[in-house]
Amino acid sequence: MKNLFTKNKTYTFISVVFLIILWKAGSLMVSSEFILPSPEKTFFSLIQLTTEPEFFNTIGSTILRGLLGFFISFILALSLGIFAGIQEKFRAFLQPLLVTIRSTPVISLILLALIWFNVNQVPVFIALLTMFPFICTNIIDGIRNVDHDLIHMAQVYRIRNKNIIRHIYIPAIMPYIFSGTSSAMGFGWRAIIIGEVLSQPTYGIGTLMQNAQTYLLTDRLIAWTVLAIIISYFFDLLIRFIEKQSITWKQT
């Protein structure tokens, strides 16, 4: 098992190196720093970004917006999702709303949000709307897939409803919550940055990406992109870590 793991890590490393070589080759062929800067120039830009006074404000603002959007959508999805999972009629009512939100182009949401909200609220609103359907749908599925045989067993043994929820429903939907959160975050970070590009809040990765693009600072644009990928990856790892900590029985 450990061997396989290290072997996989080797392949991940090879994949990253391959991508950088491809990038370097591309930049040599294009030979224009405006169109495709070299990896090393981008790397230096990245290092330079971190030394700029606004760096932490920028990163922090984007992350804060993402987390705020996530927590609001999580609480909303949890309460509505649990209710919809139990109540068939409410589920029938909620389902078209979820499909509509999920099918609406992100750009439409942003353009509307720009009319409705101030620039700092737009990315949060976008994050909320893109993440909510993922988490909510997963929670509904989780509740509907709870093993009714276990519930019947608990009823025969006269377990109180409070304990049925705590010891059967909640552990059963945990994996669904984690997988919903993971896909929601994946989409969420991208949506926030699009929101920032268009709404231009004072601090935000999207704001600075837009600036870099305007002045053709392609190396800075890619450097911010790399940072955005790192943020998204970090939160994905964090979710997996929390999942591993809380769902111990699956690993035995």
Partner: peptide
């Protein structure tokens, strides 16, 4: 008490916890 066709144990609880649960 009821012994079902299938064991109906909670997968996230150990043997001890499964028995304690009821």
């Amino acid at each position: 008490s009821y012994i079902f066709q299938d064991p109906r144990l909670l997968p996230w609880k150990t043997v001890r916890e499964n028995i304690r649960f009821v």
